[in-house]
């Protein structure tokens, strides 16, 4: 009779040791940092713009340094603008990540800013804003006994495509009318465009000159218009076309600039 009790005691002790080992190996990788999820921070997001499409690339890394394979690893993302309007959403199904392996990739997506321009996204063209990234990681661990879910919310600053177009002053010098201006565009833009200056007297175009402007930086320039003019203008219009977006600024012409 004592033998049976001893056998049961031994069996229970053995099972409990196995259970303890299972619990320990299931939990330990998380607090120890062996299982690590690195989701993109605001500074790591790379922006691009081409043909009205904004491209976004956000790096992530998942390190499975634990004892068991990670199953059903899925990364989902949902991006919304400052007012909560959905920008883009999707899911990346990675599947199984074997023990001891690391997966590193990027969350890549695009959104058609030009198409969205008319539906409340015009603000993003001319003003700085934030895009709210909600990234979720879901997976199973320890032969699907443990479910891990991580949610990460970060506001990524969005830099206006066309931050500023401004008239900085005018003067005459050496028989030329010098018009100073500046153009500030987002560094996601690349290429060249033209800054036009129109001088009007009523509805009559008195003079028109233009100059090449480089995009993606803070650009200052001076347009040189030969004097004398055929008439004294009453207003000056600065106009620039940056891809699909145009900016027009009108200033009253001061005759004192001609003296």
């Amino acid at each position: 009779m004592a033998t049976s009790i001893r056998a049961v005691q031994t069996a229970i002790a053995l099972v409990n040791v196995l259970i303890f080992a299972l619990v320990f190996t299931s939990l330990w990788p998380f607090p120890s940092g062996d299982f690590k999820v690195d989701l993109p921070s605001a500074g790591e997001v790379v922006w691009g713009y081409e043909d009205g499409i904004v491209t976004v690339s956000a790096p992530y890394s998942i390190d499975n340094g634990g004892f068991y394979d990670v199953d059903d690893l899925v990364i989902t993302y949902d991006i919304r603008n400052y007012s909560g309007e959905p920008v883009q959403s999707g899911a990346i199904e990675i599947g199984t990540l074997p023990a001891g392996e690391v997966t590193t990739d990027t969350i890549d997506f695009t959104f058609p800013l030009l198409e969205m321009y008319g539906s409340g996204f015009a603000w993003m063209v001319y003003n700085d804003a934030f895009l709210n990234f909600a990234v979720d990681v879901s997976c199973y661990y320890t032969m699907r006994l443990v479910h891990f879910y991580a949610e990460y919310n970060v506001s990524v600053p969005w830099e206006a495509l066309i931050e500023d177009v401004g008239f900085d002053g005018a003067r005459s010098q050496d028989g030329m009318l010098l018009v100073d201006y500046h153009v500030t565009t987002s560094d996601v833009l690349e290429g060249l465009t033209a800054m036009h200056v129109y001088l009007y007297n009523g509805t009559d175009l008195v003079a028109h000159y233009s100059e090449t402007v480089s995009l993606g930086e803070y650009h200052t320039g001076t347009l040189e218009i030969p004097l004398p003019l055929s008439a004294v203008p009453d207003r000056m219009v600065l106009s620039i076309q940056i891809f699909e977006f145009s900016v027009v600024e009108t200033v009253a012409f001061d005759p004192g600039w001609l003296t």
């Binding site: 939990l27 006994l145 443990v146 479910h147 949610e151 990460y152």
Partner: peptide, 12 residues
């Protein structure tokens, strides 16, 4: 911070 983590150990 910006992280929210949930462990479901119900089966364990």
């Amino acid at each position: 911070g910006p992280y929210f983590v949930q462990f479901d150990l119900t089966k364990i």
